[in-house]
């Protein structure tokens, strides 16, 4: 339906956008917009242009516009992307289809409901449970660059949810803790300052945990921050197996 009333000079590109307005519609629809094409525009710029100039009711999340706040994830031509980090020039002159991230309930237009993830983080105790508590006066824990490297990659997650959109296991059954949450859990378990590895392992090794993962590997491919959640999960499986073997072979070795 909607096409822009504004006359655009120069090159343009077409955006087909998923719309859902629960206040007066029960089914989604797609609106088509013509937007100016600019070499240096990211997809988010085009969406902002639509909101400012054509249809002020278009709803979506964004903030930092520099790929670090994790707000602006959407499906762009079927691929989960941070819209502030992909350019119109990557798609031009083909039309683009913009949809809310897959596998999540849609609250409105391009806004998804991510309550599920927030709850999962908490369940996994994504914080330090000190192994040896320390007072401020005693200063910082010593942690060598090598110990830092053990978990650093897993701290880079911006909670953008792209990996969940790429994961069919999560799509089929949302009780799966999923790539980002499992990775964050592992991040803390690998930290030399932490002492709650065993507690977390119960959940990580459970049915909702790493063993639900069938290793499709797409989560790592779409991750904009190279966090490699698939790697974290596979390593979690290896660790779980080794621990199980150990406790079978040397029951006295573990509590």
């Amino acid at each position: 339906m909607a096409s822009s009333a504004t006359k655009i000079e120069g090159k343009t590109v077409t955006l087909e956008i998923f719309r859902y307005q629960p206040d007066d519609e029960t089914e989604p629809r797609y609106d088509t917009f013509e937007v100016p094409y600019r070499e240096d525009w990211v997809v988010l710029d085009a969406i902002n242009w639509i909101k400012d100039e054509v249809d002020g009711s278009l709803s979506y999340r964004w903030s930092c516009r520099m790929g670090v706040c994790g707000s602006c994830g959407m499906m762009v031509n079927g691929e989960p992307k941070l819209t502030c980090a992909v350019f119109l020039r990557d798609y031009y002159p083909k039309p683009m289809r913009i949809e809310p991230l897959e596998h999540f309930p849609v609250t409105r237009d391009l806004v998804i409901n991510m309550d599920d993830f927030m709850g999962k983080m908490e369940k996994l105790q994504t914080w330090i449970v000190p192994k040896e508590p320390r007072t401020i006066e005693e200063g910082e824990y010593r942690q060598t660059p090598r110990q830092l490297a053990d978990y650093k990659q897993y701290t880079m997650c911006i909670n953008c949810m792209l990996c969940y959109s790429a994961c069919p296991v999560y799509g089929l059954d949302s009780s799966f803790l999923g790539p980002a949450a499992l990775t964050l859990g592992r991040r803390y378990s690998l930290d030399s300052r932490d002492g709650a590895k065993d507690e977390r392992a119960e959940l990580i090794q459970s049915d909702e945990g790493v063993w639900s993962c069938t290793f499709v590997g797409e989560c790592s491919r779409v991750c904009p921050k190279n966090v490699d959640p698939a790697g974290a999960i596979q390593a979690g499986k290896v660790e779980g197996t080794v621990d199980m073997m150990k406790s079978m072979l040397m029951p006295w070795g573990r509590k």
Partner: peptide
Amino acid sequence: ITDRSKTFNTQ
């Protein structure tokens, strides 16, 4: 203000 919706009205 053109957006009449209560749900996530960013306008």
